[in-house]
Structures are given as structure tokens and as C-alpha cells.
Amino acid sequence: MTAHHSINYIEMPVKDISATKQFFGQVFDWEFVDYGPEYTCFTNAGIAGGFFLSEQIFDLAKGTPLVVLYSAQLEASMARIEGAGGEISKAIFSFPGGRRFHFKDPSGNEFAIWSE
């Protein structure tokens, strides 16, 4: 059931659809449905969304929103990201409520992962 006025779907730019699917599938077990060569929908991510082909990227230095994922095993998630070719852009640090780190996907988009 879709809740009125809730965030329902998110779309993100990527430079390479295939590399993005490989990375997020390998690291987070996301699943994909392609809608042509320039768009793929992702599921199994906590929220549905899509990746669209673009030369643009998002990161905090540009003032863009930060997509934050959750992990019950922060260090293991970091190792999976590095093993899949992701770049750790900010090492694990503490903040009120937990710890987190930032990483960049194969397109250079910045994400974060947090844990208690």
C-alpha cells in the first residue's frame, strides 16, 4: 500500500547502467528490471527506484541529497563495497545515534551506510 505524501520512488543518474547493476547487485543484492538501454528499475532496496543514464553525478560537495543505507554489519558492508570496486570516500566515523561511512559507486555517486 502506498502512503499519501510519502517518498515513493527515487531516481538517480549513472554513467554506466551495466556497471551500476553489477555493483549494487553484488554488494546489496538489489534486483533490476530494464526499461530500455538507458533506464533500469531497482527493487529489494527498501524503496523502489531507478537508475538513468547521464553524465551527471551526485555528491555532497555539489550540495546534493545524501542517500543513506542501513547495515547491521558496517565493516562487512564496507569490505563488500571495496571488493566490488567501490571507493570509500569517508572512513567510518561516529555521529549521534551510531557510526557511518561514505562511498562512491562506479559512476562516482556518493552514498552513506550507517549502523547503530
Rank of each mutant, 00 (worst) to 15 (best):
T2S: 05
A3F: 01
H4I: 12
H5D: 01
S6E: 00
I10K: 00
E11F: 05
E11Y: 04
P13N: 09
V14K: 06
V14W: 10
K15P: 04
K15Q: 12
D16P: 05
D16N: 15
T20D: 04
T20E: 07
K21E: 15
F23K: 01
F23H: 06
F24T: 06
Q26R: 03
V27R: 03
V27P: 04
V27F: 07
D29R: 03
D29N: 14
W30T: 08
W30K: 00
W30P: 06
E31H: 10
D34H: 12
P37L: 13
E38N: 15
Y39S: 11
T40Q: 08
T40I: 06
C41K: 12
F42N: 02
A45K: 01
G46P: 03
A48D: 14
G50I: 07
G50T: 09
F51A: 06
F51E: 04
F52G: 15
L53G: 14
L53D: 12
Q56F: 09
I57R: 02
F58D: 02
F58T: 12
A61P: 01
K62V: 05
G63R: 03
P65L: 02
L66T: 10
S71W: 05
A72T: 15
Q73T: 15
L74C: 05
E75Y: 07
A76N: 10
S77D: 15
M78S: 13
A79H: 11
A79P: 01
A79V: 09
A79F: 03
I81P: 07
E82G: 14
E82K: 14
E87D: 12
S89Y: 07
K90C: 11
A91V: 11
P96C: 13
G97C: 08
G97W: 09
R100N: 13
K104E: 05
D105C: 15
P106I: 10
P106S: 11
F111R: 06
F111V: 10
F111L: 07
A112F: 05
I113R: 07
I113C: 12
W114L: 15
S115R: 05
